[in-house]
Nucleic acid binder design. Sequence first.
DNA 1: GTTCACTAAATTGTTGACAATCCCCTCGAG
DNA 2: CTCGAGGGGATTGTCAACAATTTAGTGAAC
Lengths: 219, 219
Amino acid sequence: METLDGAPGRTMTAAELADLLRTAIVNGELVPNQRLVEADLAAEYGASRGNVRVALSELSVEGLVERVQNRGARVRAVSVDEAVEITEVRAALEALCARKAAERITADQAAELQQLAESMKDAVERGDRESYSEGNQTLHARLIEISAQQTAAATIQRLRGQAVRFQFRLARQPGRPAVSLPQHLAIIDAVCAHDPDAAAEAMRVHLESVADVIRSSNP
Amino acid sequence: METLDGAPGRTMTAAELADLLRTAIVNGELVPNQRLVEADLAAEYGASRGNVRVALSELSVEGLVERVQNRGARVRAVSVDEAVEITEVRAALEALCARKAAERITADQAAELQQLAESMKDAVERGDRESYSEGNQTLHARLIEISAQQTAAATIQRLRGQAVRFQFRLARQPGRPAVSLPQHLAIIDAVCAHDPDAAAEAMRVHLESVADVIRSSNP
DNA sequence: GTTCACTAAATTGTTGACAATCCCCTCGAG
DNA sequence: CTCGAGGGGATTGTCAACAATTTAGTGAAC
């Protein structure tokens, strides 16, 4: 392997390396159970082995890689059961964010969300999967942003990184938008109506249904 | 400083060192904002500086220490706002666990919880703070255990480590048991009655009230 | 008296070499 | 043919020395 140094010239710091490996794992460039040999990574990314070591340790804490004593690191493969658990935790956390968002949302932000609702409705009517999926993502992201909950946001992001593989397969499932669109609209309605309890419950129900789909995707 | 090696003879591995530092921070032996000089730690614990480095990186990901480029690591000081956020996330997660516990609890486990309820009532009547606080902790721990949610459990534990300092000061607050005891009893009742929604809501209300106390503890 | 440049100490970041461990493969005995 | 012992190669774990950076303190110029 050649040293395909992303940052030109300079040697790579441990944090940068961790970022690169993280995105590589999340994007699926590094597949589950793939071995991560320290020397190889050091050569490939042009970093010292010590830094590779630190980066792998950090990713191990984040749950993206698995390390075993004297046997090296590999990309962690999350089971269906784990993916369900992760989605349920996300349900609880995003419900919290929806609750806070309902408390804090401004008129401008509400108008923006309602516009997004229209856009998602259109996408479903047109059968535009791509656009709908995009709207889905911005909705979740926007609600987390409005909630202004740093701790919850960080935790959600970490968990999402572990389960992207499952989210991914789910988005393209036929008939899924018909189920999830009403849920999304209910969330938007509750948040815009400044109804924290309803917003939290709607979000929780939505993500629990996602968890159900994942649960039944592998018996 | 002398090398007060906890594990005798053998040199300390990075994971062991991380564990030691974690408990030291959580127990308050290392106070917030205290500098963590790599060489000093290496000498004190009898580990190599490389391992100290890895351990600090891991603890940094866990949110217990703060690292800045070229300026070293220090014990992270969590603000009141952060402690409130952390408690709110815990509220969401423990509510999830309470919900799952209500779904899964067996008759034996229910009997055990009800016995714990009696014990906590007695403790409050006797004015036995210590015993009540202990019951409180075992209640939360037991519910998490019964819920069998690995992901949620791990996340809760990580967050608890960051906020122990606040939990701690709160336990000894006068008049607190009078407020929290009914909440605890409500949780136990709902879980034992196999009522997931009520259990989740009771737990959420309980920890939100804890968050309120923390919020008002520093204006 | 204040400000700026400069030096020196302390500390982190980085590297390469060395030791320990594990896995796989071969080989021989039963 | 199966099983266990042993060796070789690959990989991780450990260490100590070196380079780079930051911080604090000193002194001279204005």
